[in-house]
Design a protein around this nucleic acid. Structure first.
Length: 465
RNA sequence: UCCUCAGUAGCUCAACGGUAGAGCAUUCGGCUGUUAACCGAAGGGUUGUAGGUUCGAAUCCUACCUGAGGAGCCA
């Protein structure tokens, strides 16, 4: 295997004269009369290692097999480069071909492909420059998120993927069942879920929040970071059926603390990724979004605007803009409204709080005015809502009444017995939020389709690879 | 799910009612410490699928499939 000091990333920083072995996949080969140049990449760096292979070091028929996509090892000596574009290069003394890539059939060229084409080559797109950069940033972002919370003493909790409850009280969930669907269909009988694997209907989770609240009532500050699933038939560049979500939950926390944390969280992520993946961001900026660095700097340096929903509606009403959808108090804001606020009014992230309770989830804490809840949405330029959260309703009687009021929407009091118990025994004011991992990655990479920031996108009609 | 646009060579695209083309890739040849190298030649197509209109359809019409953008739902 490749040792830490032998990744291409490391080799590029080592000194001329060192004897090393490089391993990886060939990006391209250029031939001269007396010398061959091979661009080698092992996924560790957006910059390739240039291999210099003098004529005669390996047989002619071996050189013919060193084509784009082939996997090779090269032993040699690092030397100062005679050409421009790299400080050091590897002068080959011996070369091994592990796997050839028949040039007539290998689908990746050294030329640029469209992202749509690469999406259909999900098993090979990982070797492209673009997806190398994207997935290194994805890795760095995951590390940054853990570091942010770990530095603050948060406990990382794994909430269940299979769940019997629906955190929002509505929404489309993927059902998990071992019942014989084919047999049921033929018999015409209704399914009996008491006979199913878990003895009740179960689904893939849409959120770990309710379980995270359990942990917040014992560990104070906790966070989840795992996959979530939505069976909605959403066909947009911003939605996936399977995506990753980060959900911190904090006891002794009100909505102001929650906003402070969300803002610090977003800034920390950008700062850490900028520090860890500068070369990748430069590559992405060059090919996909010239404004990327400016956007990221803007987020790090801006003080997020904080307004109430009521103020937001007032701003929209007096904007003079001809929106496709009308704005009125009590109606949720549309994408165009959110974009107007972040992109045209404030030119930076905006935190909107105090939404009407009728358009928000049952667990959000009721405000004293009786008609709004302590909810918050963080809206960012270009991608819209990146974080949604709230202070939770910690008053047992208020929460119980809210659940009963929403029975018509399918909320079952008995299903939330343990959630209500948290308010009966040692309850405390608490708050939290959820952030879509891929949405944040779109922001960081400048990628405009969410399918290009997750290794294997799951969308309606597509579960290839 | 709704609206709009697009499916032509391996890839990126042109031709928009009258003989289907280019660049890149591939193969072959040449040249050069090259930088998504360069120069020359060759091979490569039932124009997404199924119907229809027409003397004639890649081009017009219908349905379906696939992809993209916008909307809704949301993270």
């Amino acid at each position: 295997m490749i040792q830490p000091d032998s990744y291409v990333r490391s080799l590029l920083k080592r000194s001329p004269g060192e004897r090393v072995t490089a391993r990886g996949w060939v990006k391209t080969r250029r031939d001269s009369k007396n010398v061959h140049f091979i661009q080698l990449n092992d996924g560790s760096s957006p910059v390739d290692l240039q291999i210099v292979l003098d004529a005669g070091v390996v047989a002619e028929d071996t050189i013919a097999k060193i084509t784009t996509g082939a996997c090779i090892s090269v032993e040699g000596e690092l030397v100062a480069s005679m050409g421009k574009g790299q400080a050091v290069e590897l002068k080959a003394l011996a070369l091994t071909i592990h796997g050839t890539a028949d040039a007539e059939h290998y689908p990746l060229q050294k030329k640029k492909h469209t992202l749509e084409t690469l999406r259909e080559l999900g098993h090979l797109r990982t070797r492209s420059n673009t997806f190398g950069a994207v997935f290194r940033v994805r890795n760095a972002l995951a590390v940054a998120i853990h570091k942010f919370f770990q530095d603050r003493g948060f406990l990382y909790v794994h909430t269940p993927v299979i769940s019997a409850s629906d955190a929002e009280g509505a929404g489309s969930m993927f059902q998990v069942t071992m019942l014989d669907l084919e047999g049921l269909g033929k018999s015409g009988k209704a399914p009996d879920f008491t006979q199913d694997f878990f003895g009740k209907r179960t689904f893939l989770t849409v959120s770990g929040q309710l379980e995270a609240e359990i942990f917040a009532h014992a560990f104070a500050n906790v966070y989840t970071f795992g996959p979530t699933f939505r069976a909605e038939n959403s066909n947009t560049p911003r939605h996936l059926a399977e995506f990753y979500m980060i959900e911190p939950e904090m006891a002794f926390c009100d909505l102001n603390d929650n906003q402070d944390l969300a803002e610090a969280f977003l800034k920390s992520q950008v700062e850490q990724v900028v520090n860890a993946c500068g070369a990748d961001l430069d590559f992405l900026a060059k090919w996909y979004d010239p404004e990327l660095r400016k956007t990221l700097d803007g987020l790090m340096n801006a003080s997020f605007e904080r307004i109430t929903y009521t103020e937001a509606i007032a701003l929209l009403n007096k904007s003079g803009k001809n929106f496709e959808f009308g704005t009125a108090w009590g109606v949720d804001m549309q994408s165009e409204h959110e974009r107007y606020l972040t992109e045209e009014v404030f030119h930076k992230p905006v935190i909107v709080t105090g939404y009407p309770k009728d358009i928000k989830a049952f667990y959000m804490r009721g405000n004293d005015d009786g008609r709004t809840v302590a909810a918050m949405d963080v809206l960012a330029p270009r991608i819209g809502e990146i974080i949604g959260g709230s202070q939770r309703e910690e008053r047992h009687d208020v929460l119980l009444q809210r659940i009963r009021d929403m029975a018509a929407h399918g909320l079952k009091e008995e299903a939330y017995w343990w959630y209500l118990d948290l308010r009966r025994f040692g309850g405390v004011h608490h708050a939290g939020f959820g952030m879509g991992f891929e949405r944040m990655l779109m922001y960081l990479t400048g990628m405009k389709n969410i399918r290009d920031v997750i290794p294997f996108p799951r969308t309606p009609g597509n579960a290839e690879f």
